[in-house]
């Protein structure tokens, strides 16, 4: 097994252990279809490079999706789903790393019930330590900045230690692995 295939396998396993769902080897059209079928309502779509590259808004609408964009805090009806890209991912913990400096990206990955993440399968690093040089570059590139490491859906065990999914963030985390995305680690 090549290193990247091995990392991909490890990532998918760890992500599913953390409660995320991974969808592998799909094309942009099937991805859009998957998202629309699972969104459960309006979809927050912030502006990010991979979304532009795929013309995701148009693809989603073509599959019947109701897309929200712009100042998402001011939208009147709450969205059920949000889509963001991922800069890269960590294999050992099943973590996706998302540069979230733009408010729309932060909201799309925080407020809705379901969060869909688009990830290029070649952008998987072994662990957090391997990601430090990239984290450093991201920090240096822009100021201020806000970077999210996300592992599985939102959870709590604060009542009698009973694990409950969906505390304040998304109840579902879907990670879609597409090769048609940007392969630049500094870009989502």
């Amino acid at each position: 097994m090549t290193t990247s295939v091995h990392l991909l396998e490890q990532f998918c396993l760890a992500a599913s252990r953390a409660g995320a769902k991974t969808v592998r080897s799909i094309c942009p059209a099937t991805a859009a279809d998957y998202i629309v079928r699972h969104a459960g309502g309006a979809i927050m779509l912030p502006d990010f490079p991979s979304a532009r590259r795929l013309d995701l808004a148009a693809l989603l609408q073509a599959h019947g999706g109701k897309v929200q964009s712009g100042d998402l805090l001011r939208t009147s009806c709450p969205a059920e789903a949000g889509i963001t890209g991922a800069n890269f991912a960590l294999a050992d913990t099943g973590t996706v790393v998302i540069e979230s400096t733009a408010q729309e990206v932060r909201l799309a990955s925080t407020l809705p019930e379901r969060h869909f993440v688009l990830l290029h399968p070649a952008k998987i690093l072994p662990d957090h330590m391997a990601a430090v040089p990239l984290l450093r570059q991201l920090h240096r590139r822009r100021s201020p900045d806000f970077i999210a490491f996300i592992t599985g859906p939102s959870r709590t065990a604060d009542i009698e230690r009973v694990l409950t999914i969906g505390a304040h963030g998304p109840r579902e985390l879907h990670i879609l692995l597409l090769e048609e995305l940007s392969d630049d680690f500094l870009e989502c």
Binding site: T93, L135, F146, A148, I150
Partner: peptide, 12 residues
């Protein structure tokens, strides 16, 4: 890993 590790530099 915890679900969220959030890195903040400056006012986003």
């Amino acid at each position: 890993a915890s679900s969220y590790v959030t890195w903040i530099r400056g006012p986003a």
